[in-house]
């Protein structure tokens, strides 16, 4: 346990610049939104509206947070692979320490963004149509949960392709490896897309219908309901990607 904790502390410090950068970026975007909103309109009201819009945008952007964090963290290890890889710990532990710290960093900025969204909503007396505070929090919570899930999924996709790239790099060189990894990523997403149009896929995922938050329905992101089966499907893909990444990291990546 201490091993994981100390490794995690190292990852925290390694990822700290990325975290601070996003934190400063967040504050900068909100400030800029307030400034531009105030100037465009006739006062604080427009400023707050702009801040609210910005916070909603920032919340959505967290879908890519963990991916960006992993890009930074893995790229920082690039020249230190002889240290990072010369570890008796399995790849799952090495990667989970990074992911856990990424999630921690994400939680901080996502909480700030969400809080700003809620505070501006309160100040503007601007609840969405048909919502009470209770339903807003419940629906918002559901959306936040989905943002986490998507963020983790995209991060695992990136980790997987990073591993593929690193596996090929020493054998084929940078350009070829990059091209092959890109083609492979395209092919996989193409095949997945194709598969998701089949009856088989529908048979697999169309169960456990739950209704989705009406804010999403209004904006056209969702069509009223979500299947639990879809979550299981993507969890399955994520698990496979993670397991494959760990295997490549343990057996195939070269310094």
């Amino acid at each position: 346990m201490n091993t994981w904790w100390q490794l995690s502390k190292k990852e925290f410090r390694l990822g700290l610049p990325a975290f601070l950068f996003t934190l400063i970026g967040l504050v900068a975007v909100l400030t800029l939104a307030f400034y531009l909103g105030t100037r465009a309109g006739s006062g604080d009201h427009e400023g707050l509206q702009a801040v609210k819009a910005a916070s909603l945008l920032l919340i959505t952007a967290h879908v890519l947070y963990l991916l960006c964090y992993m890009v930074y963290s893995l790229q920082s290890e690039r020249k230190k692979l002889h240290l990072w890889l010369a570890s008796p710990l399995p790849g799952s532990v090495l990667l989970s320490a990074k992911l856990a710290n990424g999630l921690l960093a994400m939680t901080v900025t996502l909480s700030i963004s969400s809080a700003v969204g809620l505070i501006t909503t309160a100040l503007l007396h601007d609840l969405p149509k048909g919502y009470t505070w209770g339903t807003l929090i419940a629906n918002g919570g559901f959306i936040i949960l989905n943002i986490y899930l998507m963020s983790i999924f995209f991060a695992l996709c990136f980790v997987f392709f990073w591993m593929i790239y690193r596996m090929l790099l020493r054998r084929l060189g940078g350009i070829t490896s990059g091209v092959i990894t890109g083609l492979f990523a395209w092919l996989l997403s193409y095949l997945t897309n194709l598969f998701e149009k089949t009856e088989l896929y529908h048979a697999i995922v169309r169960w456990g219908k739950i209704s989705s938050p009406s804010i999403l329905n209004q904006t056209g992101i969702s069509s009223g309901h979500i299947y639990l089966g879809v979550y299981i499907w993507y969890t399955g893909i994520a698990v496979v990607l993670f397991a494959a990444s760990c295997w490549i990291l343990d057996k195939k990546v070269e310094v």
Partner: peptide, 14 residues
């Protein structure tokens, strides 16, 4: 594999 580092200490030239 890299996990042999349990039994091997490696000093890099880097």
């Amino acid at each position: 594999t890299r996990r042999i580092s349990e039994h091997v200490a490696y000093l890099s030239e880097l």
